[in-house]
Design a binder for these strands. Sequence first.
DNA 1: GGAGAGGCTTACT
DNA 2: AAGTAAGCCTCTC
Length: 124
Amino acid sequence: MPKPPSIAFQRIRAEVIRLVGLVPEGKFTTYGSIAVHMNVMARHVAFVMSRLTEEESERLPWHRVVGADARISPKMDAELARVQRERLEKEGMKVNERGFILDDEAHFHVVGVQRDIRWSEGGD
DNA sequence: GGAGAGGCTTACT
DNA sequence: AAGTAAGCCTCTC
């Protein structure tokens, strides 16, 4: 198949949501980790996160997902960034003034190893 | 169908 | 640690 339909994004979106929901409390992961695990680009994960619905944003621990440098994305909305930081600190993590998670090694959650998923097909 | 943007990443300064 | 540049893929206009 030369050109995969946009249904791939729906599957990717669903998987991102699932993986984010698996992140335990008091821990965090990165966009890149999820992206590698899903065999997609990091930007796609970020894009999915930015387009979450209200229901999903309340149901999912989106605040446990940060950038590769273990810091809260500065491009995110200031109010959301503040909420994210407060939630992380509330779960036992220390966040710097710049949004860096201090005990990154201790609280990092490994999503999983890289998989060979072809999102273009209907499921292999 | 082309252009611009998006909660990123790695590499180099 | 901060700034710039290029990369890659999908969405939206």
